[in-house]
């Protein structure tokens, strides 16, 4: 059980109206690992991340979450039912660039509702969990307010707490700091750094080079839907194999 990778992507391909966005992607994310995904805009980073929890259905290839194939019921040899799909998605957590909090619910309800409605957790227990997770992301005092009153950085920290509430096998981050004011980026990165310290498995699409360098175990570079570099940060940032990555890194400074 513990030997199974948290995420395994095999030969994943996806095109949008004839244009290939992902080509033969292979990627393994081991338990407790942090993988940063870099690449210029339009290279397919979001699409790859969204294929992991089947928000985007790939054309071919397969994805395994802690050993369980998503989208396809391997035992019964048929596509997953809605119920099976929901249960598998519940094992991943996702944090979006635009937060996507539920505006009609309080911060605390945003965190508690998924354990209640998806996992059937008793309400009181879910509320306690929400309180505890909001403390963890430094928003214990915001539990009863509605999302529209929060700053972008605060919203994103609520979104992280909300995803954590499902105790996912892996946390997927899609440019979690790109929509933030520069002075708000640090507070979100700090929370993510803390999570990696606690051993969470994370796949992070980001443009924060410093974060990728300091926190990740592996850095993956996507270019036109292909993974053209996959290396530990020490090697990726100092001695990348491909010319394309070298040019990308030069432009960053």
């Amino acid at each position: 059980m513990s030997d199974l990778p948290a995420v395994e992507i095999r030969k994943l391909s996806k095109s949008f109206s004839g244009v290939e966005v992902l080509r033969d992607i292979d990627l393994t994310v081991n338990k407790g690992e942090v993988v940063s995904v870099l690449g210029s805009s339009g290279s397919g980073k979001s699409t790859m991340l969204r294929c992991i929890n089947w928000l985007e259905e790939p054309d071919s290839g397969s994805v395994f979450i802690a050993g369980q194939r998503i989208g396809y019921n391997s035992d019964k040899q048929r596509p997953m039912t809605n119920r099976e799909m929901a249960a598998t998605r519940a094992r991943t957590g996702m944090v979006f660039q635009s937060f996507n909090l539920w505006p009609h619910l309080t911060v605390s309800q945003n965190v508690a509702i998924s354990p209640i409605k998806v996992k059937g957790m008793p309400k009181a227990q879910a509320r306690d969990l929400a309180t505890q997770l909001l403390e963890k992301v430094g928003l214990g005092d915001k539990a009863e307010v509605y999302p529209f009153t929060l700053s972008g950085g605060q919203k994103q920290r609520v979104a992280i707490a909300r995803a954590l509430a499902m105790s996912p096998e892996v946390m997927l981050f899609d440019e979690p700091t790109s929509a933030l004011d520069p002075e708000r980026v640090g507070e979100v990165l700090q929370v993510m750094r803390d999570l990696s310290g606690e051993g969470y498995t994370m796949v992070v699409v980001t443009h924060e080079m410093e974060f990728a360098r300091m926190v990740s175990d592996q850095v993956v570079f996507l270019d036109k839907g292909l993974i053209i570099e996959k290396a530990p940060p020490e090697i990726f940032f100092t001695n990348p194999a491909s010319e394309r990555v070298r040019r990308f890194l030069d432009r960053q400074d």
């Binding site: 598998t88 991943t92 996507n100 998806v118």
Partner: peptide, 8 residues
């Protein structure tokens, strides 16, 4: 999408 991702 967020609700789908959380397994609703």
């Amino acid at each position: 999408e967020a609700a789908q991702a959380h397994g609703f």
